[in-house]
Design a protein around this nucleic acid. Sequence first.
RNA 1: GCGGCUGUAGCUCAGUUGGUUAGAGCGCCAGGUUGUGGCCCUGGAGGCCGUGGGUUCAAGUCCCGUCAGCCGCCCCA
Length: 440
Amino acid sequence: MKYAAPPYMHDVLPFEPSKDKWLHSAKWRTLERIFEDICISYGYKQIRTPVMEQTELFLRSIGQGTDIVSKEMFTFTDRGGRSMTLRPEGTAPAIRAYVEHNLHTENSLVKLYYIASIYRYERGQKGRFREHQQTGVEAIGSKDPALDAEIITLAMGFYECLGIPSTELKLNSVGCPVCRPKYREALLEFARPRLDKMSEDNRMRFDVNPLRMLDSKDERDKRALEGVPIFLDHLCAECQEHFKALKSYLDALSVPYVLDTNLVRGFDYYTKTAFEIICPALGAQNAIGGGGRYDGLVEVIGGTPTPGIGFGIGTERCLLALDQLGISLPMDDASPMVFVAALGDETKLTAAKLVHELRRSGVPTDTDYSQRRLKLQMRQSDKLGAKYMLIIGPEEIERGEAVVKKMTGEKDQVNIPISNVVQFFRELYKSRGASCQDDE
RNA sequence: GCGGCUGUAGCUCAGUUGGUUAGAGCGCCAGGUUGUGGCCCUGGAGGCCGUGGGUUCAAGUCCCGUCAGCCGCCCCA
């Protein structure tokens, strides 16, 4: 094999691969459709941004001390000497566009959704890739905790519609510029005398990003940090009030959650609400979505101070979870309604014309291009899953008729005038479509 | 960035203690009489055994490097 997809990136194929069944484009389309339907029902509008941004945008928004910025960005210099970076997350680009195009003038609250490829230079593993897709939303312009609840219910509703059972919502508050420095001090004070008992990683975090010490999984760190002061006890009055209100909204909406006082997300811009959704069926990489409030981000990116909140959901991990659980998604029926078989050269023009007209009428139609015998054309038709076959041979041309053969259920075939063929299938297809919609 | 395991046809894999022209199933293509599918039977195409080096009379089989994949750590979706 000469070429392969770049490391830890993948192709999504037109058919279901025997091994990675989730790499089937029909599943992706279904997931995206479900996501878009929900976003629309919540009043979110789509935004599309470039796959890359100036590196500076991510340095400023995500934060220099984060793993993403320090070692996981796809950064390169373009021909104009600019440092560019493939987006390692979806929020900063959306906020950049919000600021650049003054979207706040459209509405005081702007609700956006996106479906975007994300790039991080990581070592691959089950459920972790260098290119992955996220579906996400951002709501910019309100600090109402009811909006936090809306965002969370949107995410949870998506998993439910997808059919992922038993997800777990983890919730925390990471405070604001008023209370975070105070908590940080308390944390540093607690950790300083215990540093020699902690891992090397955590000693580094102590200097660079102390909050990250909290979610270390190293046993030494866990032991050393027993009894560590927790952020929820150090929130300022405003943050406390916000968190309390959010919890009562979630309770009122019957959204179960578990508090996780060690939940610290990977971006520096989060304030107040932080959440993560995990699916225990997955392996080590079991987070299928996460997000939080970022009340300072718009200002950092150069806009007027505006609160906001959003989340991102990993497409691959959702599909992977479904496969792992043996749950199948409802998929579009991509098989043709009609397969047209022409017998002999003198029928090909008539057949080509019928194929053309059927397609123009919106009837999914396919045909044979390898001059095969009827039997082989039928096999081909069968493989494609065509509902009907239209057979045109010299005899039919002479009589001005075509054979319509039913390919599913009971065998049945009739002759109809060639001039009626398009009309016949158009009606058949329309009535089929109607009955399908009733099923949904 | 670190660690473990793996690398043979399009796919899933066999390949005996190293020994002649490397196999199976599925898939693909075609045939099983003249214009009727799904099953079945027969045949065909398709592999520099990931790649480079080494050991040996002899390497798909042993050793080393390298690349890629998988799984885990870190971190995240």
